[in-house]
């Protein structure tokens, strides 16, 4: 080996250098080619909203055609008016708040219970052997079927709704937690052991952050399921909430009310999912490190 290799200090790249042939070298491309590409981007951004408008127009055409009675297919305008009325007299916010409270408490309770039981199952084969058969059986039971039972036991109030919601979000969170904690590389466990870390330190410095990507994946699924849980519970028995509103609208042939409530529920579910995604971006920002830049 040449002696001058010893003197050569490496200058490592922070990121691999761009290859000259990579597809993202737009600035090297002639202007003629970059203009259509820009326009194509504009089109793509308009495609999804455009499709939405098309559906809305179709809906309006069907409603105006007179093929169906108003209480079966109300026009988009009728639904919007109904929604506006509800929002105006404050009843929409009241019902939404009721459902949201059930959803949030149920989600938090279910996700918490699932995380800790998942953690114990992942850590202890004994706990796994004892609990897993029952948890799988519980998952096999349709929640809708046991909702009436829970309402008999816990009354038609807040508690039974939270329980149904928590039961529904439990399983996906549990499965993901078990996977996340079991998949931690044994080399990292060795490292922690070699540093004489306490069980609490191992949890805080290794197990929690290492399992976070998969656990948050479970949280996102659970967030959407929690809305379903609350609505199912309200269907069975309730005097307020968006699920109750839907039930009430159906009973009184107030179809615009049903559709307005469904839209509101969708917004709530999307907001929850967005919240979970935001949490993901916040906690897992490190996952974006070292990605190459495209487009």
């Amino acid at each position: 080996m040449d002696s001058d290799t010893t003197a050569t200090k490496s200058h490592p790249h922070r990121r691999p250098p761009d290859t000259p042939f990579s597809a993202d070298s737009a600035e090297h491309a002639p202007a003629l080619h970059s203009t259509p590409r820009l326009r194509a981007g504009w089109w793509r951004a308009l495609l999804a909203p455009g499709f939405g408008v098309l559906l809305l127009v179709l809906w309006d055409v069907v409603a105006q055609s007179g093929l169906y009675a108003d209480f079966i297919v109300p026009s988009p305008r009728a639904v919007a008016d109904r929604w506006w009325d509800l929002a105006g007299d404050g009843s929409l916010t009241r019902h939404m708040a009721v459902t949201l409270r059930e959803v949030l408490v149920g989600l938090l309770a279910g996700v918490n219970a699932a995380f800790w039981s998942g953690y114990l199952i992942a850590k202890s084969r004994l706990v796994a052997n004892i609990l897993m058969p029952y948890l799988v059986a519980l998952q096999a039971v349709p929640i809708v079927a046991i909702a009436p039972l829970l309402i008999i036991w816990f009354g038609p109030g807040f508690t039974s709704k939270v329980l149904i919601c928590a039961l529904l979000v439990f399983f996906p969170m549990l499965v993901n937690t078990v996977l996340g904690v079991r998949n931690i590389p044994s080399e990292l466990r060795d490292l922690m052991e070699a540093l004489e870390s306490t069980p609490l330190q191992t949890f805080w410095y290794l197990e929690l952050p290492a399992s976070m990507p998969i656990v948050i994946g479970g949280l996102k699924v659970s967030a959407t399921l929690s809305v379903i849980g609350a609505v199912v519970a309200e269907f069975v028995s309730a005097s307020e909430g968006l699920g109750y509103l839907i039930n009430f609208g159906r009973g009184t042939f107030d179809t615009p009310l049903v559709i307005a409530a469904v839209f509101t529920l969708t917004v709530v579910a999307l907001a929850l999912y967005g919240l979970a995604s935001w949490l993901e971006r916040l906690l897992l920002a490190w996952q974006n490190a070292g990605r190459s830049v495209h487009n």
């Binding site: 590389p185 080399e187 060795d190 490292l191």
Partner: peptide, 9 residues
Amino acid sequence: FQKANLMPW
């Protein structure tokens, strides 16, 4: 260890 075994987060 053989692998750097760093915590990616």
